[in-house]
């Protein structure tokens, strides 16, 4: 069975800052050979620090960014061969900040109805579908004429979800869908996402910092570091026994809700390396507690052991 979404050896570059007028810009490799697949109805989580390439990967999946190398296939068809509109019917985003992802000068009805309008659905039918979708995400007709600034954060995120789902896509890319919301609202939105997943048989790519969320919701998880996937496998197995030192560090840095537990140790010293001057060998070696000589020279490949792929020499 072909997976719904298949990413193969993807490389994405950003033009780097130019050093001077005559010096040539050295491109920054935001994603460096990532392979990942998302099956039908599956929730795949991408986890990693800021700047590790999660959002770049999301943009590439949405076709908003042209990859420098590698391929992304949706249902076996390469994204490059699809038109914008075809793509927009199958794979859609929910962004992190619903204050920025909804146009402040539009009404809820026109925001949610926009994808339909772009696909030339007649006005009457549009109205009907928009209403039904608002009900589905837990809003009502009262909200049709409101503008984003008249809504709460949770309501805004519901509007953003309604907009993403209105074309009945197969895959939704959620870029930190709850991190800008109040804690009390986060659970509501996550429950809504999961309920919709069952009802509409959706697949999600879930980008998140919140390991607890990932552990609860994801079927599979991919840990990213510096533009590469360092560990990937079934969520339960990865979290039960993290193998890559980076995953272990992430896991131990997560706050526990139990107040008797001490604050987590900082775990990792140092910072994410400068993408304009990448370290040699394994990108993680400057911060890795188990770094060996080999790590400084040789970049480890992803190797599968018992269904979990790890990129480490250990």
């Amino acid at each position: 069975m072909t997976p719904l979404l298949e990413i193969e050896d993807l490389v994405c570059r950003y033009p780097g800052r130019r050093g001077g007028f005559f010096r040539h810009a050295r491109p920054i490799h935001a994603i460096n050979g990532v392979s990942l697949s998302v099956g039908e109805g599956e929730v795949v989580a991408l986890v990693g620090e800021s700047g590790c390439g999660k959002s770049t990967l999301a943009r590439a999946m949405l076709g908003l960014l042209k990859p420098a190398a590698g391929a992304i296939r949706l249902d076996g068809t390469p994204l490059a061969a699809m038109t914008r509109r075809e793509l927009a019917r199958r794979i859609l985003p929910v962004f992190q900040d619903p204050y920025s992802s909804l146009n402040p000068s539009k009404t809820v009805e026109s925001i949610v109805g926009l994808p339909l309008r772009l696909n030339r659905v007649p006005a009457e039918e549009r109205r009907r579908i928009v209403r039904a979708m608002l009900m589905r995400v837990g809003l009502s007709e009262r909200h049709l004429a409101r503008r984003p600034h008249q809504l709460s954060g949770g309501q805004r995120q519901r509007v953003a979800i309604a907009r993403a789902l209105i074309m009945e896509p197969k895959l939704v890319v959620c870029d930190e869908p709850t991190s800008s919301l109040d804690v009390s609202v986060q659970a509501q939105i996550l429950n809504l996402l999961m309920q919709l997943r069952r009802e509409l048989r959706l697949s999600y790519v879930l980008i998140s910092h919140n390991l607890a969320v990932v552990e609860r919701l994801a079927d599979r998880v991919a840990i990213m570091y510096f533009g590469r996937i360092v560990e990937e496998g079934p969520a339960a197995a990865v979290f039960a026994r993290p193998r890559h030192p980076y995953t272990q560090a992430l896991r131990s840095a997560a706050l526990s809700p139990d107040p008797d537990q001490p604050l987590p140790s900082a775990g990792l010293g140092g910072e994410v390396p400068d993408p304009a001057a990448p370290p040699s060998g394994c990108a993680f070696h400057p911060r890795c507690p188990h770094a060996m000589d080999r790590c400084r020279v040789e970049t480890p490949d992803l190797r599968e052991v018992n269904g979990i792929a790890v990129a480490c020499h250990l």
Partner: peptide, 22 residues
């Protein structure tokens, strides 16, 4: 630079539509 522009483009809006309507 705001996400609503990105969202509109992910939904298949043309650049012209984004500039004039969004």
């Amino acid at each position: 630079n705001r996400d609503y522009v990105l969202a509109a483009s992910a939904h298949g809006s043309s650049a012209l539509r984004i500039m004039l309507a969004e």
